[in-house]
Design a protein around this nucleic acid. Structure first.
Length: 493
RNA sequence: UCCUCAGUAGCUCAGUUGGUUAGAGCACCUGACUGUUAAUCAGGGUGUCCCUGGUUCGAGUCCAGGCUGAGGAGCCA
């Protein structure tokens, strides 16, 4: 009632400081007949009359209609692609097709000019590579604003899922003093003068460094998550992770975000249930809340695949494939079963694989994972119980003494999206494995303590956040789903 | 790091067996028009052909080395 009254007053005259209405709210349909102020960035200015304005609140633009006869020509000249504007006027049903509503402009202000000769983004299609080089501006494109809104929705859904399931969010340290985590090359953290570090007996003396020891950026929060899970039962981490690998692929970043749930009293099967339920929940959330953006990205993908031969195009459209994954059970398959399938597969018999599968124990290559996911099952696959030799030291030894309770989830087009395991909770077995893997016990005393005092069965996994966003958005390169990608030879912006 | 491919106007790209002054579309500038949807029409070329060296009468084109990017592999998430 009170609001109605305000609205009536509002439509009679302009307040001196009218509040901005987000475009997402303005085009919802409920505000027709209201006087509104819109602020945003000009996408196009057509016919000297129609300003397409976007403020990032939605992929849709609002059409602001100016009677150019009543406005200063010099002012209208400043309405260029990329300029920021404030427009006030009456929101009405659109006279033209293509949009439901439009704003009849009564007040027009250019907030920030944009020299059209120099502004890099034109009202046309740009290559993703070009936009990557202009990452400071690329969020002003439909594609990237859609991707980043979805990235947000995915992050939010992850926190919501875990919260609703009784998990606690643990902030694992970014700087780590243990170099025994065994997940690849690390970035050193130091405040030494690199030209002239202090030395002792010819060697760099790390005891004089900031932390009094050698430290690195974290490659995984798993070990810390395990400590927390063995107190709080159900925890997860969600933070930046760093790998100094010289990886140049569409699936690797030097700085990426990883989610690592860890659950006490849970075995490998519980772990698979958690991962599968979690992935489905997140995808459903995005399907429900990001419809406009998904539809746009679906069209973008179709457009992009038009140029490809039919065999290389996706069988399902983006939204279809998300529905499919969220509504169907993942295939669960032991490593041993996978080897049997692969050994008898056509590409193996016809020697089409670059690495032929002949015996149990071989590490699976990308081509094998792809075959299983994209050709044989055509759905996400959970592979588990791998040979102990090809997996990490902390994974729990199975009773066969040959395999460990590891599991990887493979997604079509992405490959490994989740890697996890039941953890070795038996102190003596863990110590033996560490010796086999040359991991010094004295650096991991705190990890071993959890097995010494009240050890329990527990499991967890790591999920590559960008790989999940990659799958959900249908983009082709993780560099295009993170605002400012860090890759070898690239840390611009 | 390895393999393959690419680098020409602001962007996307064409450029013949090495041959005169390097082109197109879009963007941009000027003008016209005005209910448009990446508006339309007319006119205008804005260039270190990635860099360095070499072969040649002559190199965007051929050769060598380098830089950058992409795809794939490895590593993995």
């Amino acid at each position: 009632m009170f609001r109605r009254l305000l609205l009536m007053l509002n439509s009679c005259y302009f307040e001196p400081h009218m509040r901005r209405t987000e475009i997402a709210k303005a085009i919802g349909g409920e505000k027709i007949g209201d006087k509104l102020k819109i602020m945003g960035w000009v996408r196009t200015f057509r016919s000297n009359r129609f300003i397409s304005v976007n403020d990032g609140s939605t992929i849709k633009n609002i059409q602001a209609v100016v009677d150019f006869e009543n406005f200063d020509a010099e002012l209208l000249k400043r309405i260029t692609t990329g300029a920021s504007v404030s427009v006030e006027g009456l929101l009405v049903e659109s006279l033209g097709k293509g949009q439901a509503v439009e704003l009849q402009v009564e007040k027009l202000e250019v907030l920030g000019d944009s020299d059209p000769d120099k502004f890099p983004l034109q009202p046309k299609r740009h290559s993703l590579e070009f936009l990557r080089e202009n990452a400071h501006l690329r969020a002003r494109t439909n594609t990237f604003s859609a991707v980043f809104r979805i990235r947000h929705a995915v992050a939010y859904a992850i926190h919501k899922y875990f919260n609703d399931e009784g998990f606690y969010y643990i902030h694992a340290p970014i700087i780590t003093g243990s170099d025994a985590e065994g997940a690849g090359e690390m970035f050193a953290v130091t405040n030494f003068d690199l030209e002239n570090p202090p030395k002792k007996d010819g060697e760099i003396d790390y005891s004089q460094d900031f932390f009094g020891k050698k430290t690195n950026l974290t490659v995984s929060g798993q070990l810390e998550a395990e400590l927390a899970a063995l107190a709080l039962s159900k925890v997860y981490t969600f933070g930046p992770t760093f790998r100094a690998e010289n990886s140049n692929t569409s699936r690797h970043l030097a700085e990426f975000w990883m989610i690592e749930p860890e659950v006490a009293f849970a075995d490998i099967l519980d772990n698979m249930d958690l991962a599968e339920g979690f992935l489905k929940y997140v995808i459903k959330h995005v399907l429900k809340h990001c419809k406009d953006d998904l539809e746009f990205l679906e069209q973008r993908k179709q457009q992009e695949e038009k140029g490809l031969p039919e065999a290389q195009r996706s069988e399902l459209d983006l939204i279809e494939s998300l529905n499919f994954v969220s509504e169907n059970d993942f295939v669960r398959l032991t490593y041993t079963e996978a080897i049997d399938i692969l050994r008898n597969s056509k590409p193996n018999k016809k020697k089409k694989f670059q690495y032929l599968i002949d015996e149990w124990g071989a590490d699976l290559q990308s081509e094998h994972e792809r075959f299983l996911v994209e050709k044989h099952f055509k759905k996400p696959v959970i592979l588990y119980n791998y040979p102990k030799e090809i997996k990490a030291f902390y994974m729990r030894m199975n009773d066969d003494n040959k395999t460990v309770a590891a599991m990887d989830i493979l997604f079509p087009g992405i490959g490994e999206i989740v890697g996890g395991s039941q953890r070795e909770e038996r102190l003596e077995v863990l110590k033996t494995k560490m010796a086999e893997f040359d991991i010094p016990e004295d650096e991991m005393w705190w990890y071993l303590d959890t097995r010494k005092y009240g050890t329990v069965v527990h499991s967890g996994f790591g999920l590559g956040f960008e790989r999940l966003v990659l799958f959900i958005t249908g983009m082709g390169n993780v560099r295009d789903v993170i605002p400012f990608p860090r890759t070898p030879k690239n840390a611009e912006f």
